[in-house]
């Protein structure tokens, strides 16, 4: 099957019911998207599919046909961080950083549809992403900064 990731077309050998997360990580070695639960409960695997945030652990390869997938590896362009990444870096958000890629992808999706979200909207949109280190207020701050950038 074919997979369009970060503007590149890949032919992958995984079966059509394989989760997108496994194809990205194990077959394409795009390991920025993380396994956290395999059930769409934690958001660590969040990627964009045609610009919308999806939990890649719950998306079978078959559902990605003809869609554009963007992963954390696809945000930085020629050494320039995406404004959301830059804001997360500036705020120095994280502790362990394992949830970082999923958080950033969820935030990118939010700002693409809602460039000036209120705090309530940020919290509602991001609630499916878990940061067990508890950096939530710092993430909200970074998203606000990115929205003002």
């Amino acid at each position: 099957m074919e997979l369009q990731v970060n503007g590149n077309k890949h032919t992958v050998s995984a079966a059509s019911d394989t989760s997108l997360l496994y194809v990205l990580r194990d077959e394409l070695d795009l390991t920025g998207s993380k396994y956290g639960c395999g059930e769409g409960q934690c958001g660590a695997c969040t990627v964009l599919m045609d610009g919308k945030a999806v939990r890649s652990c719950r998306v079978p390869l078959s559902a990605t046909q003809g869609k554009q997938i963007t992963t954390i590896e696809g945000l930085e362009k020629e050494g320039q961080l995406h404004p959301v990444q830059q804001a997360f870096l500036d705020v120095d958000v994280f502790q362990c950083g394992y949830c970082a890629p999923g958080m950033i992808m969820s935030a990118v999706a939010l700002l693409e549809t809602n460039p000036r979200p209120s705090e309530e909207e940020i919290v509602a949109h991001m609630n499916g992403n878990i940061c067990r280190c508890g950096t939530y207020p710092r993430i909200v701050k970074a998203i606000k900064e990115a929205s003002n950038a």
């Binding site: 945000l75 950083g97 890629p101």
Partner: peptide
């Protein structure tokens, strides 16, 4: 700032998994 912060927000840091 966190010395390897950029590695984390770009997904480049390799965790064991």
């Amino acid at each position: 700032p966190k010395v390897n912060g950029r590695e984390l927000i770009t997904g480049r840091h390799k965790f064991v998994s």
